[in-house]
């Protein structure tokens, strides 16, 4: 009898102790709810209204979305963003993967040095380097002149609607190669050497080891790089804002820029919120994959 009551006391004491965990997570729950979750829900609500910020909001149902789907400017911006994202993801993954292989190879002499050189753009503020590239792309800027002198190409980097979108991708790739390279390197270093050693003894060459050992074991890293790269690139803003402002002729007007302009230049808050909702929904699938990877890592 006595033993049992001690047991209960112990249990309640233990339970009370565990409840103190709520105090630890309370600030996070509170701030995340107010400043992240509520605004996200509010974006959905706002997208159903017409509102110029000063007057009172007018409920218009899905008309913002109907207008959105029938407006050329939105579709043009959407496809500009998608194109930017696809090209960035493809090039970034391709280049950073091969660099990470090279930097983990035994043939590489100055790993630290090379890695730091490629990684440097990652640590520089986007706005600052966008200014630099903007100058280098002027008609008498460094890059324009170099391409004219060496290849004889006169490239209108920022003034042609055909070329400016690719120029954006170029700068983006330069800026973030180091980031994904480091993620790949971390993944590669996690592959135990013995696998490669064993395959070598069995006579497997470089390509066979790449396809049958490296790539399968790197699967999770590849997915994560893909997803995070897609999400990052889709949300690009500073690059276009500083270098082109969306021009020429809106050829680089990405969605974030459109969201910003519709709300703060044309004060169409409801319409802008509708674009935000489309932005969120497009990334939803990628976000779900990312969340899945994180939760499997956390073993929930």
């Amino acid at each position: 009898m006595k033993k049992k009551s001690i047991g209960i006391q112990k249990a309640t004491y233990y339970n009370r102790l565990q409840k103190q965990g709520y105090i630890f997570i309370l600030p996070t729950l509170l701030l995340f709810s107010i400043f992240l979750i509520y605004p996200m829900l509010d974006a959905f609500r706002l997208s159903l209204y017409e509102w110029n910020f000063t007057g009172s909001p007018l409920y218009i149902g899905l008309r913002n979305f109907i207008k959105l789907f029938t407006t050329k400017r939105f579709w043009s911006s959407y496809s500009v963003t998608l194109q930017f994202t696809f090209l960035s993801v493809f090039l970034l993954m391709f280049i950073s993967f091969w660099l990470s292989l090279a930097f983990t190879s035994k043939l590489c002499w100055f790993k630290q040095l090379y890695q730091s050189m490629v990684f440097l753009p990652v640590v520089l503020p986007m706005v600052a380097i966008a200014v630099v590239w903007k100058f280098m792309f002027q008609s008498t800027g460094l890059l324009s002149v170099v391409f004219l002198d060496i290849f004889g190409w006169n490239i209108p980097w920022l003034t042609s609607t055909k070329i400016a979108p690719y120029t954006m991708v170029l700068v983006n790739v330069w800026k973030f190669t180091g980031y994904y390279m480091v993620m790949f390197i971390a993944g590669l270093l996690n592959i135990p050497d013995v696998y490669h050693e064993a395959a070598k003894i069995d006579g497997a060459g470089f390509w066979r080891r790449l396809i049958h050992i490296t790539l399968p074991l790197l699967k999770n890293t590849i997915i994560l790089v893909f997803v995070s790269c897609a999400i990052f690139s889709f949300g690009t803003f500073a690059l276009q804002y500083v270098m082109t402002g969306g021009g020429p002729s809106r050829s680089t007007e990405v969605l974030t820029l459109l969201i910003y302009k519709e709300a703060f230049e044309y004060t169409k808050f409801g319409y802008s919120a509708a674009i935000s909702v489309m932005f969120f929904l497009t990334l939803f699938i990628f976000s779900i994959i990312q969340l899945k990877i994180f939760s499997s890592e956390a073993e929930i």
């Binding site: 965990g21 997570i25 509520y38």
Partner: peptide
């Protein structure tokens, strides 16, 4: 514990760019 953790983690799915307008209003 797990449910609340998943709720916190789900905010990973909210791109900052998508909540700029309502956040500004808040």
């Amino acid at each position: 514990n797990k449910l609340l953790f998943i709720i916190v983690m789900s905010t990973l799915m909210i791109p900052f760019e998508a909540i700029v307008i309502p956040l500004f209003l808040l």
